[in-house]
Write a protein that binds this DNA or RNA. Structure first.
Lengths: 204, 204
DNA sequence: CGGACAGGATGAAGATTCTCATCGCGGACG
DNA sequence: CGTCCGCGATGAGAATCTTCATCCTGTCCG
């Protein structure tokens, strides 16, 4: 079983390699950033699994992962991150990632997950995927009305009021009022701050 | 690796056994219903994994699974079902189940999942868990107000108006009005029908 | 039979949500 | 410099949500 590990955090990467190599039947190759990983793949793409760090030079959010998946559709590609939120993990999986590995995972679980993914299955820690669903959303989301949530969603996608209005099939002033109201509710003073607060709360 | 399979559907159970036994290192024991499974466990509880069918005599929803988990906390218990909805799977996992297996799973994935769970990990098919999140809920849930949804949830748990009122900290007549309104919205003519419609829609 | 109780219906009131028209401010562009 | 565009704020109306008091129907039990 041959695995490519790409992470700019040396210590973590080395620990990971040590754990996996100790399993006997796992061969690991390392890269420090996305470019290096792609160079390695260009020379030899016979890997069972590629692990990419989410916060690694060259990744650019999920774009880097998707590029690798497009270029090597026969390889399972999984995302690692110590800080990524649940929405990011969900998007990665929706985009077809073989899995999502938070760096809080135990060594034992990690080895199991790696083997699992190398066999072509899709993995994610279920406590991570399900647990946070209730609390952080309801924290803020429960305070907002249906419309306000839709407006906030548009906002987090970088849309202008006019675009949001068109999407929701209402006039622009309506969107503006929703904006103002939801500012008050979540304690933001302008649209940028509102978008950041929504992100912090794990929304969208 | 020793596994207990409890399912009242003979054909499926036998197929499952055949697949798993063909892996060489898996030993399977079978039961036809929950009572039989518990009898087997009473004599010998050295199992790595117990697979329970959701629609099996004696299960009574998730209660049967939880009973087994309480009696044998050292054994991984997983739920199988061909018809269970996502909310049920989520509740099972939240209750501490080792996993959820829809019967649509491929044989290969199933064997991987079984091995995975027997090692103490938690498994669920991610496409099943993530995909259905939007459509079936929004169908009906989007029409109902926050309060009406809470009332409907209480209804699907078999509570009386008075109980729901106490839980929500309002007077009973208020609950009654919410009931009446949500009947109209979802097209039900009485509380029983409303509860069934909610279940059919995959709510709660 | 009389009462207790649960479910369902009606009327009414206040709060919230949703919609829009209008005004003011600041930056960008010709 | 004038104009346009996007953002934010205000005022106002309609619709909806939420709450409750009150009545009417059954059913079950003493």
């Amino acid at each position: 079983m041959k695995i490519l590990i790409a992470d700019d955090h040396d210590l973590l990467r080395d620990t990971l390699v040590m754990f996996l190599e100790s399993q006997g039947d796992i061969e690991t190759i390392c890269a420090r950033d996305l470019g290096e990983a792609q160079d390695i793949l260009k020379k030899d793409d016979r890997f069972d699994l590629v692990l990419l760090d989410f916060n690694m030079p060259g990744m650019n959010g999920l774009a880097g992962m998707e590029a690798v998946m497009r270029a090597y559709p026969h390889i399972s590609v999984a995302l690692m991150s110590g800080v990524a939120t649940k929405p990011i993990a969900e998007k990665a999986l929706a985009a077809g990632a073989a899995g999502f590995l938070p760096k809080t995972l135990s060594a034992k679980s990690l080895i199991n997950a790696v083997k699992f993914m190398a066999m072509g299955e899709q993995y994610a820690p279920l406590d991570f995927m399900t647990a946070e669903e209730e609390t952080p959303q309801n924290e803020m989301a429960e305070k907002l009305s249906r419309r306000e949530l839709q407006v906030l969603e548009g906002l987090t996608q970088g849309k202008s009021n006019k675009e949001i209005a068109r999407d929701l099939d209402v006039q622009e002033p309506t969107v503006k009022l929703h904006m103002k109201t939801l500012y008050r509710k979540i304690g933001a003073s302008n649209r940028t701050q509102a978008a950041l607060l929504a992100r912090d709360a794990g929304l969208f």
